[in-house]
Amino acid sequence: MQNDTLKRRSFLNYLLGGGVIAVLAAIGFPIYKYLKPPKIPEAAESQVTAGTLAELQAAEGRYKIFRFGRKPGIVVLMPNNEIRAFSASCTHLDCIVQYRPDLNVLWCPCHNGKYDLTGRNISGPPPRPLEQWVAHYDKASDNIFVSKGEGA
């Protein structure tokens, strides 16, 4: 009989323990999911307008930050008047980079990170190069169009 009671008791303990775990999971799982923001579908823009050449020429540091979907991008007017575009999100901790004509680098003021004008990280903490995008100048409208891949 003794044995039976023990068995019954440990059975009840398992039931209780399992029940508690189930309740906690039932509370915890929705909360965990709720905490993660839903994915907002990004309008699949393949190309955006980064501004006009006139704007870029007038800009103080000869660069302009523009918006590509939800990400910031940068267009740079190089000394030889070539236009280049990059992702502006620093690969270190996500600050926004800028062009420094005096040093001829892309510079991140947050921790003094530097990239050359192909986007390669050359000094400071950034661990990876900046993604280079494709800039395309349309003379007729004076617009600079930027797309991400080669294909556009």
């Binding site: 930050i65 523009f66 918006r67 910031p72 502006a88 600050c95 926004i96 980079v97 800028q98 003021p109 947050c110």
Partner: peptide, 10 residues
């Protein structure tokens, strides 16, 4: 402004 460069002395 999420689409501007940070101030230099951040």
């Amino acid at each position: 402004d999420p689409f501007s460069s940070p101030p230099a002395h951040i």
